[in-house]
Write a protein that binds this DNA or RNA. Structure first.
Length: 417
RNA sequence: GUGGAAUUAGCUCAGUUGGUUAGAGUGCCAGAUUGUGGCUCUGGAGGUCGUGGGUUCGAUUCCCAUAUUCCACCCCA
């Protein structure tokens, strides 16, 4: 076997899929209660969508995209995140003409060509929400409250919300000038990356892990302290709304997020358990993105949540997730009853019962062992006698208890026990 | 991107100071007087010892390269 899954990808095996399904279903369930509707978008898009949507200055676009040319000579890219494609679909399909706000959620995989690390893959899975068409802080709060409810229903604790405001096109430019002025005389004291960022995206310097302890970064002016009156009011209202809903959070002026499209609110849910990959969920407001992609100016707010990291967090908090479940019943048969067994097995399945029978022409003893191994809940032996009398002995595998039943009552009994 | 460790059966790992048919545990399959599982016992299948070169009479073992994985840092979010 010389073929392997590509670097940064992994197989999700049957022992893990129940946990994945549980997390995804829990998310869908919460989204549904908030009236977010699922949208599914293509795995790849025109490269330009991400260049414009995610932002040319970001590391994602500059060096992490899986870009290829299709047979028609068009440049395509595997999505590095979900929002750009969802916005494109929203515009292309006229959802902007549906009742506003539009509330969409997605569960999808994304691709970034990155160095591998704990909790970081080149193909990874995200669940996210986008709320289009409301600039009110209550929309931001609703997005955040959805997450709080989701985490609560999963039983997650010790996961902290940090929020910040990074201003709007009105107040941001003046602040950026001020930040550059502050940094300019001492920029050479910061790490190489930060020196790169100085022109391109100086706010990312605030978020730099390498210089996090540096006094220059610690004392830098923050956008939060230089918001225009509208942004200030927006942020204050959001905080008041979060207080009103009873959520704990921390205001952190150094949270800036890596994508270009954010404005005003940004937030992260951070775990202390997953090490350096502690951001389980990131999001914020992106009022300019839809216009940037060719739509009418439309405010929007959303988030994306990393499923791999979420599952790691659930594991490290010892939260028990669903695991593989054996069949409700296994039917032992003999060479001369195997066809009848298959028929009864089919009928049980038709009655919504998870039933298994002998597919290997196995000996009686081997079938017993097999039923035990696959953790069948009940077992019946179907031989000539049982077929003749239409009575079976149903054995509960956990304790070996057996009860006599009419064959006809089998489905009903199993359903009720 | 840097440093370290690792790669031998499906899984977890021994091992060969370079020598013929490469081992264990576990899992899988089968059987233990052929209608009752878990424990136990017996047997079987399953490895071109990560890949490609080199040295050698001979390489799984030594050397070089390369791929992959893990850990730490870096980066990213």
């Amino acid at each position: 076997m010389d073929l392997k899954a590509p670097r940064g990808t992994r197989d999700i095996l049957p022992v893990e899929t129940p946990a994945w399904q549980y997390v995804e279903q829990s998310f869908s369930s919460v989204c549904d209660r908030f009236s977010f509707q699922e949208i599914r978008v293509p795995t790849f898009e025109q490269t330009e969508l991400f260049q414009r949507g995610v932002g040319d200055t970001t590391d994602i676009v500059q060096k992490e995209m899986y870009t290829f040319e299709d047979k028609g000579g068009r440049s395509m890219t595997l999505r590095p995140e979900g929002t750009a494609g969802v916005v494109r679909a929203y515009l292309e399909n006229g959802l902007s003409s549906e009742p506003s706000p539009q509330k969409l959620y997605y569960i999808l995989n994304s691709f970034r060509y990155e160095k591998m690390g704990k909790g970081r893959y080149r193909e990874f899975n995200q669940m996210g929400c986008e709320l289009f068409g409301s600039e009110e802080p209550t929309a931001d709060a609703e997005i955040i409250s959805l997450l709080f409810l989701f985490f609560r229903e999963l039983g997650l604790k010790e996961i902290n919300l940090k929020i910040n405001s990074i201003g709007c096109p009105k107040c941001k430019p003046a602040y950026l000038d001020q930040l550059r002025e502050y940094l300019r005389p001492q920029i050479h004291e910061l790490c190489e990356n930060c020196q790169d960022r100085f022109e391109r995206n100086p706010m990312r310097i605030l978020d730099c892990k390498e210089d996090a302890e540096n006094e220059i970064v610690k004392n830098a002016p923050l956008q939060l302290e230089h918001l225009c009156s509208e942004c200030e009011e927006h942020f204050a209202s959001l905080c008041a709304e979060l207080d009103n809903l009873g959520f704990q959070y921390e205001i952190d002026g150094h949270i800036v997020r890596g994508l270009d499209y954010y404005s005003r609110t940004v937030f992260e849910f951070i775990s202390n358990n997953v090490g350096t990959q502690g951001t389980i969920c990131g999001g914020g407001r992106y009022d300019g993105l839809i216009e940037e992609l060719g739509g009418l100016p439309t405010p929007a707010v959303g988030f994306a949540l990393g499923v791999e990291r979420l599952l790691m967090e659930l594991n490290s908090q010892n939260i028990v997730l669903p695991s593989v479940k054996g069949p409700d019943i296994y039917i032992v048969s003999f060479p001369d009853t195997i066809n009848q067994a298959a028929k009864i097995c089919f009928e049980l399945r038709n009655n919504k019962i998870k039933a298994e029978n002998n597919l290997n022409a196995r000996s009686f003893r081997a079938q017993m062992k097999y039923a035990d191994r696959i953790q069948a809940k009940y077992l019946v032996v179907l031989g000539e006698d049982e077929l003749k009398t239409e009575k079976v002995s149903l054995k509960r595998m956990s304790d070996g208890e057996e009860i006599e039943l009419d064959l006809a009552d089998l489905a009903e009994y199993i359903k009720n026990n």
